[in-house]
Design a protein around this nucleic acid. Structure first.
Length: 129
DNA sequence: ACCGTGACTGGCA
DNA sequence: ATGCCAGCCACGG
C-alpha cells in the first residue's frame, strides 16, 4: 500500500489514493510481454493529459512491496525513460527482454504491436474474439 | 503559500 | 523528420 506520507488526500477532485492503486493495478494487469505508456494509463484513470502524475506514481512504486512490473511502462516513444530509476539502469531492459520484448538501445522494438491499452483492454471486456 | 521539479504528451517551428 | 515550448497534476522545500 501507500506510505503514510503519501496518503494525503488534498485533492477533492480526485482520489489520489485510488489513483495510486489504480495505476499499480493497471500496471500489474499488463500481460507478460506487453508494454504500455503513461498517457494510456492517465487516460484510463481519467487524469487525461497528466501523464506525469502517472510517472510520479511509478516513482513511488519502488516503495511498494512487492514492487510492480514498472518495467512494462514506458513513455510514448517506447523509450525506457524510467530505467534509470530501477535498481540498475539495465534492469528494466533485462526484464523486458526476458519477457520476449525486443529492446534495442533502450528503445522497445515493435512498440505499436506490443502496446497494451488498458482503456481498451479493460473496458471492452475483451470479447475474447 | 509560492516556486521548482518530474519515469510525460502534443503541437508548432 | 528532429527539436523546442507549453500544459498538466502532485509533491517537496
Amino acid at each position: 500500500m501507500l506510505p503514510p506520507s503519501l496518503r494525503k488526500n488534498k485533492s477533492p477532485k480526485f482520489d489520489k489514493e485510488n489513483f495510486f492503486e489504480k495505476v499499480f493495478a493497471v500496471v500489474k494487469k499488463i500481460p507478460r510481454g506487453r508494454v504500455t505508456n503513461y498517457g494510456a494509463i492517465a487516460n484510463y484513470l481519467g487524469t487525461g493529459l497528466s501523464a506525469r502524475t502517472v510517472g510520479w506514481a511509478m516513482n513511488s512504486s519502488h516503495i511498494l512491496v512487492p514492487p510492480i512490473p514498472a518495467h512494462r511502462v514506458v513513455n510514448r516513444n517506447g523509450l525506457l525513460t524510467g530505467k534509470n530509476h530501477f535498481a540498475t539502469p539495465t534492469l528494466m531492459e533485462e526484464l523486458l527482454q526476458a519477457e520476449g520484448v525486443e529492446v534495442v538501445d533502450d528503445k522497445i522494438q515493435n512498440f505499436e504491436k506490443l502496446f497494451w491499452n488498458p482503456a481498451l483492454e479493460l473496458s471492452v471486456k475483451k470479447k475474447r474474439k
